[in-house]
Design a protein around this nucleic acid. Sequence first.
RNA 1: GCGGCCGUAGCUCAGUGGUAGAGCCCUCGGUUGUGGUCCGAGUUGUCGUGGGUUCGAUCCCCAUCGGCCGCCCCA
Length: 444
Amino acid sequence: MSDEKRKTYKPVPISGFPEWLPEIRLVEQGWMDHIRRVFESYGFCSIETPSVEALDVLRAKGEVDKEIYVLERLHRDEDDDSEARLALHFDQTVPLARYTAQHFNDLVFPFKRYQMQRVWRGERPQLGREREFYQCDIDVIGVDHLPLHFDAEMPAVIYEALEGLDIGRVQIKVSNRKILTGLCGALGIADPVPVTRMIDKMDKIGADGVREGLSALGLSSAQNDSLMALAQIKTRDPETLKARIESLSLQGDDVITEGVAELAFVLEQLRHLPDHAVTADLSIVRGLDYYTGTVYETRLLDIPAFTSSVCSGGRYDDLAGSYINKHLPGVGISIGLTRLFAVLEHHGHIKAGRKSPADMLVVLPAEERRAAAAETARALRARGYKVELYHAPQKLKKQLAYAEKKGIPYIWFPPFEDGQGHEVKYMTTGAQITADPETWTPES
RNA sequence: GCGGCCGUAGCUCAGUGGUAGAGCCCUCGGUUGUGGUCCGAGUUGUCGUGGGUUCGAUCCCCAUCGGCCGCCCCA
Protein backbone atom coordinates (compact mmCIF):
# COMPACT_ATOMS: atom_id res chain seq x y z
CA MET A 1 0.00 0.00 0.00
CA SER A 2 1.33 3.41 -0.89
CA ASP A 3 1.21 6.54 1.23
CA GLU A 4 -1.10 8.05 -1.30
CA LYS A 5 -4.68 7.71 -0.26
CA ARG A 6 -6.46 5.03 -2.22
CA LYS A 7 -9.42 6.10 -4.21
CA THR A 8 -12.64 4.69 -2.78
CA TYR A 9 -16.25 4.81 -3.71
CA LYS A 10 -18.25 6.28 -0.94
CA PRO A 11 -20.58 3.53 0.21
CA VAL A 12 -24.16 4.72 0.18
CA PRO A 13 -27.35 2.82 0.85
CA ILE A 14 -29.45 2.10 -2.20
CA SER A 15 -32.82 3.65 -1.65
CA GLY A 16 -35.56 1.07 -1.41
CA PHE A 17 -33.19 -1.84 -0.87
CA PRO A 18 -33.01 -2.34 2.88
CA GLU A 19 -30.27 -4.15 4.75
CA TRP A 20 -29.72 -4.69 8.46
CA LEU A 21 -26.93 -4.90 10.97
CA PRO A 22 -26.34 -8.37 12.43
CA GLU A 23 -28.19 -7.63 15.67
CA ILE A 24 -31.31 -6.58 13.75
CA ARG A 25 -30.98 -9.30 11.14
CA LEU A 26 -30.97 -11.83 13.96
CA VAL A 27 -34.45 -10.66 14.93
CA GLU A 28 -35.69 -10.74 11.35
CA GLN A 29 -34.35 -14.26 10.98
CA GLY A 30 -36.15 -15.26 14.17
CA TRP A 31 -39.38 -13.88 12.73
CA MET A 32 -38.95 -15.85 9.55
CA ASP A 33 -38.24 -19.03 11.47
CA HIS A 34 -41.36 -18.54 13.55
CA ILE A 35 -43.58 -17.77 10.58
CA ARG A 36 -42.24 -20.80 8.73
CA ARG A 37 -42.99 -23.06 11.69
CA VAL A 38 -46.56 -21.82 11.90
CA PHE A 39 -47.14 -22.25 8.17
CA GLU A 40 -45.79 -25.78 8.27
CA SER A 41 -47.84 -26.63 11.34
CA TYR A 42 -50.93 -26.20 9.16
CA GLY A 43 -49.48 -28.43 6.48
CA PHE A 44 -48.35 -25.84 3.99
CA CYS A 45 -45.37 -27.03 1.99
CA SER A 46 -42.53 -24.83 0.87
CA ILE A 47 -41.68 -23.95 -2.68
CA GLU A 48 -39.24 -21.47 -4.10
CA THR A 49 -39.52 -20.09 -7.59
CA PRO A 50 -36.82 -18.20 -9.50
CA SER A 51 -36.39 -14.48 -8.90
CA VAL A 52 -37.27 -13.97 -12.52
CA GLU A 53 -40.13 -14.92 -14.77
CA ALA A 54 -40.55 -14.38 -18.45
CA LEU A 55 -41.82 -10.86 -18.89
CA ASP A 56 -44.81 -12.15 -20.82
CA VAL A 57 -45.77 -14.38 -17.90
CA LEU A 58 -45.71 -11.46 -15.50
CA ARG A 59 -47.89 -9.45 -17.79
CA ALA A 60 -50.34 -12.19 -18.62
CA LYS A 61 -52.79 -11.10 -15.96
CA GLY A 62 -52.96 -7.58 -17.26
CA GLU A 63 -51.25 -5.93 -14.34
CA VAL A 64 -49.04 -3.85 -16.53
CA ASP A 65 -49.38 -0.89 -14.18
CA LYS A 66 -46.87 -2.49 -11.80
CA GLU A 67 -43.37 -1.11 -12.04
CA ILE A 68 -41.42 -4.12 -13.22
CA TYR A 69 -37.64 -4.49 -13.16
CA VAL A 70 -36.39 -6.08 -16.34
CA LEU A 71 -33.24 -8.18 -16.34
CA GLU A 72 -30.64 -7.43 -18.95
CA ARG A 73 -27.28 -8.99 -19.77
CA LEU A 74 -24.56 -6.39 -20.15
CA HIS A 75 -23.06 -8.14 -23.17
CA ARG A 76 -26.29 -9.11 -24.79
CA ASP A 77 -26.17 -9.13 -28.56
CA GLU A 78 -28.49 -6.33 -29.65
CA ASP A 79 -30.07 -8.37 -32.42
CA ASP A 80 -30.36 -11.59 -30.49
CA ASP A 81 -34.02 -12.24 -29.77
CA SER A 82 -33.58 -15.93 -29.05
CA GLU A 83 -33.88 -15.49 -25.29
CA ALA A 84 -37.15 -14.57 -23.64
CA ARG A 85 -37.05 -11.26 -21.81
CA LEU A 86 -36.81 -11.87 -18.10
CA ALA A 87 -38.04 -9.69 -15.30
CA LEU A 88 -38.02 -9.81 -11.50
CA HIS A 89 -41.34 -10.94 -10.06
CA PHE A 90 -43.40 -8.27 -8.29
CA ASP A 91 -45.40 -10.71 -6.18
CA GLN A 92 -45.59 -14.43 -5.54
CA THR A 93 -49.06 -15.02 -6.86
CA VAL A 94 -48.17 -14.82 -10.51
CA PRO A 95 -45.18 -17.16 -10.12
CA LEU A 96 -47.44 -19.52 -8.17
CA ALA A 97 -49.94 -19.52 -11.00
CA ARG A 98 -47.24 -20.36 -13.53
CA TYR A 99 -45.77 -23.00 -11.21
CA THR A 100 -49.11 -24.64 -10.58
CA ALA A 101 -49.93 -24.78 -14.25
CA GLN A 102 -46.51 -26.12 -15.12
CA HIS A 103 -46.45 -28.87 -12.51
CA PHE A 104 -50.16 -29.52 -12.50
CA ASN A 105 -49.87 -33.29 -12.91
CA ASP A 106 -47.36 -33.66 -10.09
CA LEU A 107 -49.13 -31.60 -7.46
CA VAL A 108 -51.70 -32.82 -4.97
CA PHE A 109 -54.84 -30.71 -4.67
CA PRO A 110 -55.94 -28.79 -2.77
CA PHE A 111 -52.39 -27.56 -3.10
CA LYS A 112 -51.28 -25.82 0.08
CA ARG A 113 -47.99 -24.04 -0.29
CA TYR A 114 -46.08 -21.27 1.41
CA GLN A 115 -43.42 -19.11 -0.11
CA MET A 116 -41.09 -16.66 1.60
CA GLN A 117 -39.09 -14.78 -0.97
CA ARG A 118 -38.05 -11.35 -2.06
CA VAL A 119 -40.11 -9.50 -4.61
CA TRP A 120 -39.32 -6.30 -6.50
CA ARG A 121 -41.33 -3.25 -7.42
CA GLY A 122 -39.88 -0.12 -8.96
CA GLU A 123 -42.13 2.28 -7.13
CA ARG A 124 -40.99 5.39 -5.24
CA PRO A 125 -39.50 4.21 -2.00
CA GLN A 126 -40.81 5.47 1.32
CA LEU A 127 -40.81 4.21 4.82
CA GLY A 128 -42.60 0.88 4.62
CA ARG A 129 -42.54 0.96 0.86
CA GLU A 130 -39.37 -0.65 -0.42
CA ARG A 131 -38.30 -1.69 -3.88
CA GLU A 132 -36.98 -5.04 -2.69
CA PHE A 133 -38.87 -6.77 0.08
CA TYR A 134 -39.88 -10.08 1.56
CA GLN A 135 -43.36 -11.46 1.29
CA CYS A 136 -44.52 -14.50 3.19
CA ASP A 137 -47.39 -15.99 1.20
CA ILE A 138 -49.69 -18.86 1.89
CA ASP A 139 -52.18 -20.00 -0.71
CA VAL A 140 -54.46 -22.94 -1.23
CA ILE A 141 -55.35 -23.89 -4.78
CA GLY A 142 -58.21 -26.20 -5.66
CA VAL A 143 -59.37 -27.75 -8.89
CA ASP A 144 -62.82 -26.53 -9.98
CA HIS A 145 -63.88 -26.05 -6.39
CA LEU A 146 -62.24 -24.93 -3.16
CA PRO A 147 -64.07 -25.33 0.16
CA LEU A 148 -64.87 -22.18 2.08
CA HIS A 149 -63.15 -23.79 5.04
CA PHE A 150 -59.86 -22.50 3.65
CA ASP A 151 -61.12 -18.91 3.64
CA ALA A 152 -61.42 -19.28 7.39
CA GLU A 153 -58.11 -21.05 7.77
CA MET A 154 -56.14 -18.12 6.36
CA PRO A 155 -56.82 -15.70 9.24
CA ALA A 156 -56.28 -18.48 11.75
CA VAL A 157 -52.83 -19.18 10.40
CA ILE A 158 -51.91 -15.54 10.06
CA TYR A 159 -53.10 -14.69 13.52
CA GLU A 160 -50.86 -17.36 14.96
CA ALA A 161 -47.93 -16.28 12.83
CA LEU A 162 -48.17 -12.61 13.77
CA GLU A 163 -49.19 -13.12 17.35
CA GLY A 164 -45.85 -14.79 18.07
CA LEU A 165 -43.78 -11.82 16.92
CA ASP A 166 -44.10 -9.62 20.00
CA ILE A 167 -45.75 -6.78 18.12
CA GLY A 168 -48.81 -6.31 20.30
CA ARG A 169 -52.35 -7.21 19.41
CA VAL A 170 -53.15 -8.02 15.81
CA GLN A 171 -56.52 -7.67 14.17
CA ILE A 172 -57.50 -9.34 10.93
CA LYS A 173 -60.29 -7.62 9.10
CA VAL A 174 -62.39 -9.74 6.83
CA SER A 175 -64.92 -8.84 4.22
CA ASN A 176 -66.46 -10.33 1.14
CA ARG A 177 -66.41 -8.52 -2.13
CA LYS A 178 -69.67 -9.99 -3.28
CA ILE A 179 -71.51 -7.84 -0.79
CA LEU A 180 -70.21 -4.50 -1.90
CA THR A 181 -70.08 -5.25 -5.61
CA GLY A 182 -73.55 -6.74 -5.33
CA LEU A 183 -74.77 -3.53 -3.79
CA CYS A 184 -73.11 -1.48 -6.53
CA GLY A 185 -74.97 -3.60 -9.05
CA ALA A 186 -78.25 -3.19 -7.23
CA LEU A 187 -77.72 0.56 -7.14
CA GLY A 188 -77.05 0.64 -10.85
CA ILE A 189 -73.47 1.82 -10.56
CA ALA A 190 -71.88 1.04 -13.89
CA ASP A 191 -68.23 0.98 -12.86
CA PRO A 192 -67.79 -0.17 -9.27
CA VAL A 193 -63.98 -0.01 -9.28
CA PRO A 194 -63.47 3.68 -8.41
CA VAL A 195 -66.31 3.43 -5.92
CA THR A 196 -64.90 0.46 -4.09
CA ARG A 197 -61.43 1.97 -4.17
CA MET A 198 -62.79 5.06 -2.46
CA ILE A 199 -64.56 3.01 0.18
CA ASP A 200 -61.32 1.14 0.82
CA LYS A 201 -59.87 4.42 2.10
CA MET A 202 -62.25 4.47 5.05
CA ASP A 203 -59.47 3.81 7.52
CA LYS A 204 -57.28 6.48 6.07
CA ILE A 205 -59.57 9.43 5.37
CA GLY A 206 -62.55 8.60 7.56
CA ALA A 207 -66.25 8.25 6.81
CA ASP A 208 -66.70 11.92 5.97
CA GLY A 209 -63.80 11.80 3.57
CA VAL A 210 -65.22 8.76 1.83
CA ARG A 211 -68.66 10.34 1.60
CA GLU A 212 -67.16 13.41 -0.06
CA GLY A 213 -65.11 11.26 -2.35
CA LEU A 214 -68.16 9.30 -3.44
CA SER A 215 -70.07 12.47 -4.16
CA ALA A 216 -67.14 13.69 -6.20
CA LEU A 217 -67.44 10.49 -8.24
CA GLY A 218 -70.95 11.56 -9.15
CA LEU A 219 -73.00 9.29 -6.91
CA SER A 220 -76.40 10.44 -5.83
CA SER A 221 -76.94 11.00 -2.14
CA ALA A 222 -79.26 7.97 -2.04
CA GLN A 223 -76.53 5.78 -3.52
CA ASN A 224 -74.01 7.35 -1.20
CA ASP A 225 -76.18 6.65 1.85
CA SER A 226 -76.67 3.01 0.95
CA LEU A 227 -72.99 2.43 0.38
CA MET A 228 -71.95 4.22 3.53
CA ALA A 229 -74.47 2.32 5.62
CA LEU A 230 -73.02 -0.92 4.38
CA ALA A 231 -69.38 0.09 4.50
CA GLN A 232 -69.58 1.14 8.12
CA ILE A 233 -70.68 -2.25 9.35
CA LYS A 234 -68.08 -3.68 11.65
CA THR A 235 -68.68 -6.72 13.81
CA ARG A 236 -67.15 -10.04 14.61
CA ASP A 237 -70.41 -11.77 15.37
CA PRO A 238 -71.99 -13.59 12.40
CA GLU A 239 -75.55 -13.09 13.69
CA THR A 240 -75.02 -9.38 14.17
CA LEU A 241 -73.58 -9.20 10.69
CA LYS A 242 -76.64 -10.84 9.18
CA ALA A 243 -78.99 -8.69 11.21
CA ARG A 244 -77.31 -5.46 10.23
CA ILE A 245 -77.29 -6.36 6.54
CA GLU A 246 -80.96 -7.30 6.77
CA SER A 247 -81.78 -3.96 8.31
CA LEU A 248 -80.50 -2.32 5.13
CA SER A 249 -83.33 -4.02 3.20
CA LEU A 250 -81.15 -5.39 0.45
CA GLN A 251 -82.91 -8.77 0.27
CA GLY A 252 -83.49 -10.38 -3.02
CA ASP A 253 -80.05 -9.84 -4.43
CA ASP A 254 -78.41 -13.25 -4.86
CA VAL A 255 -74.86 -11.97 -4.96
CA ILE A 256 -75.22 -10.06 -1.72
CA THR A 257 -76.94 -12.97 0.01
CA GLU A 258 -74.16 -15.30 -1.08
CA GLY A 259 -71.47 -12.92 0.11
CA VAL A 260 -73.10 -12.47 3.49
CA ALA A 261 -73.45 -16.21 3.96
CA GLU A 262 -69.79 -16.75 3.12
CA LEU A 263 -68.58 -14.01 5.41
CA ALA A 264 -70.79 -15.27 8.24
CA PHE A 265 -69.35 -18.75 7.77
CA VAL A 266 -65.81 -17.44 8.00
CA LEU A 267 -66.58 -15.52 11.18
CA GLU A 268 -68.26 -18.58 12.63
CA GLN A 269 -65.17 -20.70 12.00
CA LEU A 270 -62.96 -18.15 13.74
CA ARG A 271 -64.79 -18.07 17.04
CA HIS A 272 -61.87 -19.72 18.78
CA LEU A 273 -59.68 -16.64 18.31
CA PRO A 274 -59.55 -13.86 20.94
CA ASP A 275 -62.16 -11.10 20.68
CA HIS A 276 -59.89 -8.47 19.23
CA ALA A 277 -58.31 -10.79 16.66
CA VAL A 278 -60.97 -10.83 13.96
CA THR A 279 -63.67 -8.55 12.72
CA ALA A 280 -65.82 -8.26 9.68
CA ASP A 281 -65.26 -4.81 8.20
CA LEU A 282 -67.34 -4.08 5.14
CA SER A 283 -65.12 -1.21 4.09
CA ILE A 284 -62.32 -3.61 3.23
CA VAL A 285 -62.13 -4.14 -0.50
CA ARG A 286 -58.49 -4.47 -1.58
CA GLY A 287 -57.21 -2.88 -4.73
CA LEU A 288 -56.32 -5.94 -6.72
CA ASP A 289 -58.94 -6.70 -9.27
CA TYR A 290 -58.69 -10.48 -9.23
CA TYR A 291 -60.18 -10.97 -5.78
CA THR A 292 -63.74 -12.22 -6.06
CA GLY A 293 -64.93 -13.23 -2.59
CA THR A 294 -63.33 -13.13 0.83
CA VAL A 295 -60.75 -10.39 1.34
CA TYR A 296 -58.41 -9.76 4.26
CA GLU A 297 -56.47 -6.92 5.75
CA THR A 298 -54.54 -6.72 9.00
CA ARG A 299 -53.90 -3.99 11.57
CA LEU A 300 -51.63 -3.64 14.56
CA LEU A 301 -53.86 -2.43 17.37
CA ASP A 302 -51.13 -1.40 19.78
CA ILE A 303 -48.87 0.50 17.43
CA PRO A 304 -50.72 3.60 16.22
CA ALA A 305 -47.76 4.72 14.13
CA PHE A 306 -48.40 1.76 11.93
CA THR A 307 -51.41 2.63 9.85
CA SER A 308 -51.12 0.47 6.78
CA SER A 309 -52.03 -3.16 6.34
CA VAL A 310 -49.25 -5.58 7.18
CA CYS A 311 -50.89 -8.59 5.70
CA SER A 312 -53.59 -8.94 3.14
CA GLY A 313 -55.07 -11.24 0.58
CA GLY A 314 -58.25 -12.86 -0.55
CA ARG A 315 -60.02 -15.40 -2.69
CA TYR A 316 -59.75 -15.53 -6.44
CA ASP A 317 -61.92 -17.54 -8.81
CA ASP A 318 -59.33 -18.62 -11.24
CA LEU A 319 -55.63 -18.50 -10.51
CA ALA A 320 -54.00 -19.86 -13.59
CA GLY A 321 -56.47 -19.41 -16.39
CA SER A 322 -53.81 -17.59 -18.38
CA TYR A 323 -51.47 -20.58 -18.27
CA ILE A 324 -53.57 -23.71 -18.30
CA ASN A 325 -56.99 -24.75 -19.46
CA LYS A 326 -58.22 -25.65 -15.99
CA HIS A 327 -60.36 -23.87 -13.47
CA LEU A 328 -58.23 -23.33 -10.37
CA PRO A 329 -59.85 -21.28 -7.62
CA GLY A 330 -57.71 -20.30 -4.68
CA VAL A 331 -57.43 -18.28 -1.54
CA GLY A 332 -54.27 -16.73 -0.19
CA ILE A 333 -52.81 -14.18 2.13
CA SER A 334 -49.43 -12.55 2.38
CA ILE A 335 -47.43 -11.03 5.19
CA GLY A 336 -45.51 -7.95 4.08
CA LEU A 337 -42.58 -8.94 6.21
CA THR A 338 -40.18 -6.18 5.21
CA ARG A 339 -42.79 -3.45 5.50
CA LEU A 340 -43.81 -4.70 8.91
CA PHE A 341 -40.26 -5.11 10.09
CA ALA A 342 -38.83 -1.91 8.63
CA VAL A 343 -41.58 0.33 9.97
CA LEU A 344 -41.44 -1.18 13.44
CA GLU A 345 -37.66 -0.95 13.42
CA HIS A 346 -37.85 2.70 12.43
CA HIS A 347 -40.16 3.49 15.32
CA GLY A 348 -37.97 1.66 17.81
CA HIS A 349 -40.27 -1.31 18.34
CA ILE A 350 -37.64 -3.89 17.43
CA LYS A 351 -35.45 -4.88 20.34
CA ALA A 352 -32.07 -5.55 18.82
CA GLY A 353 -30.69 -9.04 19.29
CA ARG A 354 -27.07 -9.94 19.85
CA LYS A 355 -24.34 -9.09 17.40
CA SER A 356 -23.36 -12.74 17.33
CA PRO A 357 -25.32 -15.96 17.56
CA ALA A 358 -22.55 -17.49 19.69
CA ASP A 359 -23.48 -18.75 23.15
CA MET A 360 -19.94 -18.63 24.35
CA LEU A 361 -16.45 -17.47 23.64
CA VAL A 362 -13.62 -19.82 24.43
CA VAL A 363 -10.64 -17.82 25.60
CA LEU A 364 -7.27 -18.47 24.00
CA PRO A 365 -4.77 -18.26 26.91
CA ALA A 366 -1.59 -18.63 24.88
CA GLU A 367 -0.50 -19.81 21.46
CA GLU A 368 0.74 -23.14 22.92
CA ARG A 369 -2.75 -23.71 24.29
CA ARG A 370 -4.53 -23.24 20.96
CA ALA A 371 -4.95 -26.97 20.23
CA ALA A 372 -6.38 -27.63 23.67
CA ALA A 373 -8.70 -24.61 23.48
CA ALA A 374 -9.91 -25.69 20.04
CA GLU A 375 -10.60 -29.14 21.45
CA THR A 376 -12.64 -27.60 24.24
CA ALA A 377 -14.61 -25.56 21.71
CA ARG A 378 -15.34 -28.70 19.68
CA ALA A 379 -16.51 -30.54 22.78
CA LEU A 380 -18.92 -27.74 23.61
CA ARG A 381 -20.18 -27.54 20.03
CA ALA A 382 -20.78 -31.28 20.06
CA ARG A 383 -23.13 -30.67 22.96
CA GLY A 384 -25.14 -28.20 20.93
CA TYR A 385 -23.66 -24.88 21.97
CA LYS A 386 -22.69 -22.21 19.48
CA VAL A 387 -19.07 -21.56 20.26
CA GLU A 388 -16.50 -19.12 19.02
CA LEU A 389 -12.81 -19.64 19.77
CA TYR A 390 -10.94 -16.38 20.22
CA HIS A 391 -8.51 -15.91 17.39
CA ALA A 392 -5.35 -14.65 19.08
CA PRO A 393 -3.70 -14.98 22.49
CA GLN A 394 -4.30 -11.35 23.34
CA LYS A 395 -4.81 -9.84 26.75
CA LEU A 396 -7.88 -11.16 28.47
CA LYS A 397 -9.11 -7.61 28.70
CA LYS A 398 -9.36 -7.59 24.93
CA GLN A 399 -10.89 -11.03 24.68
CA LEU A 400 -13.59 -10.19 27.24
CA ALA A 401 -14.30 -6.82 25.69
CA TYR A 402 -14.78 -8.59 22.37
CA ALA A 403 -17.32 -10.94 23.88
CA GLU A 404 -19.02 -8.07 25.65
CA LYS A 405 -19.42 -6.10 22.44
CA LYS A 406 -20.80 -9.08 20.58
CA GLY A 407 -23.22 -9.88 23.36
CA ILE A 408 -21.86 -13.37 23.97
CA PRO A 409 -23.26 -14.43 27.35
CA TYR A 410 -20.69 -17.01 28.51
CA ILE A 411 -16.89 -16.94 28.56
CA TRP A 412 -15.20 -20.29 28.71
CA PHE A 413 -11.73 -20.43 30.29
CA PRO A 414 -9.87 -23.60 29.33
CA PRO A 415 -6.87 -24.56 31.53
CA PHE A 416 -4.08 -21.99 31.37
CA GLU A 417 -1.58 -24.57 32.58
CA ASP A 418 -1.48 -28.34 32.76
CA GLY A 419 -3.34 -29.69 35.73
CA GLN A 420 -5.73 -26.76 35.98
CA GLY A 421 -9.47 -27.11 35.44
CA HIS A 422 -11.97 -25.25 33.25
CA GLU A 423 -13.95 -22.22 34.34
CA VAL A 424 -16.95 -20.44 32.91
CA LYS A 425 -17.93 -16.83 33.46
CA TYR A 426 -21.50 -15.50 33.24
CA MET A 427 -21.28 -12.08 31.61
CA THR A 428 -24.65 -10.97 32.93
CA THR A 429 -23.72 -11.43 36.58
CA GLY A 430 -19.95 -11.50 36.43
CA ALA A 431 -19.94 -14.77 38.34
CA GLN A 432 -17.23 -17.27 37.46
CA ILE A 433 -17.26 -20.93 38.43
CA THR A 434 -15.31 -24.09 37.71
CA ALA A 435 -16.98 -26.24 35.09
CA ASP A 436 -16.59 -29.37 33.00
CA PRO A 437 -17.09 -28.93 29.23
CA GLU A 438 -18.65 -32.41 29.07
CA THR A 439 -21.34 -31.78 31.66
CA TRP A 440 -21.82 -28.05 32.23
CA THR A 441 -25.22 -26.54 31.56
CA PRO A 442 -26.06 -22.88 32.12
CA GLU A 443 -28.07 -22.01 35.19
CA SER A 444 -31.36 -20.58 34.08
C1' G B 1 -45.66 9.63 -12.47
C1' C B 2 -47.19 14.49 -9.59
C1' G B 3 -46.36 17.94 -5.19
C1' G B 4 -43.43 19.71 -0.70
C1' C B 5 -38.94 19.77 2.42
C1' C B 6 -33.74 18.84 2.96
C1' G B 7 -28.30 17.79 1.67
C1' U B 8 -21.65 19.64 7.06
C1' A B 9 -17.27 13.40 10.04
C1' G B 10 -19.61 6.15 10.28
C1' C B 11 -24.32 8.18 13.20
C1' U B 12 -27.21 12.59 15.41
C1' C B 13 -26.46 17.49 14.57
C1' A B 14 -24.11 22.78 15.54
C1' G B 15 -21.67 26.71 12.79
C1' U B 16 -19.46 31.30 10.11
C1' G B 17 -18.50 35.60 3.47
C1' G B 18 -11.89 34.46 5.04
C1' U B 19 -11.02 26.76 3.41
C1' A B 20 -14.80 23.67 10.19
C1' G B 21 -16.77 21.86 15.42
C1' A B 22 -19.69 18.86 19.55
C1' G B 23 -21.72 14.30 21.34
C1' C B 24 -21.92 9.17 20.20
C1' C B 25 -19.08 5.41 17.69
C1' C B 26 -14.15 3.64 16.63
C1' U B 27 -8.60 2.79 17.96
C1' C B 28 -4.81 2.81 21.79
C1' G B 29 -3.29 3.33 26.92
C1' G B 30 -4.32 3.31 32.59
C1' U B 31 1.98 -2.90 33.67
C1' U B 32 1.86 -8.58 35.89
C1' G B 33 -4.69 -14.02 33.90
C1' U B 34 -10.86 -11.04 33.33
C1' G B 35 -15.67 -7.08 30.07
C1' G B 36 -19.44 -3.31 31.09
C1' U B 37 -18.10 2.41 34.66
C1' C B 38 -14.26 6.13 34.96
C1' C B 39 -9.75 8.85 33.21
C1' G B 40 -6.24 10.13 29.28
C1' A B 41 -4.66 10.22 24.12
C1' G B 42 -5.80 9.64 18.92
C1' U B 43 -8.00 8.86 13.70
C1' U B 44 -11.97 10.54 10.45
C1' G B 45 -14.55 15.34 6.37
C1' U B 46 -13.08 17.02 -2.00
C1' C B 47 -19.00 21.15 4.25
C1' G B 48 -23.65 16.32 -2.30
C1' U B 49 -21.80 17.83 -7.59
C1' G B 50 -21.07 21.62 -11.49
C1' G B 51 -21.25 26.67 -12.65
C1' G B 52 -21.91 31.96 -11.22
C1' U B 53 -21.31 36.53 -7.86
C1' U B 54 -16.97 37.98 -4.87
C1' C B 55 -10.23 39.69 -3.48
C1' G B 56 -12.15 35.17 -1.19
C1' A B 57 -17.92 30.69 -0.51
C1' U B 58 -19.35 25.36 3.33
C1' C B 59 -22.28 29.85 4.09
C1' C B 60 -25.31 34.15 -1.47
C1' C B 61 -27.52 32.85 -6.71
C1' C B 62 -28.54 29.11 -10.68
C1' A B 63 -28.50 24.25 -12.28
C1' U B 64 -27.93 19.21 -11.33
C1' C B 65 -27.86 14.79 -8.57
C1' G B 66 -29.26 12.43 -4.19
C1' G B 67 -32.31 11.74 0.16
C1' C B 68 -36.86 12.19 2.96
C1' C B 69 -42.19 13.06 3.22
C1' G B 70 -47.17 13.45 0.94
C1' C B 71 -50.31 11.79 -3.38
C1' C B 72 -51.23 7.70 -6.87
C1' C B 73 -50.91 2.50 -5.88
C1' C B 74 -49.83 -1.12 -2.76
C1' A B 75 -46.85 -5.50 1.30
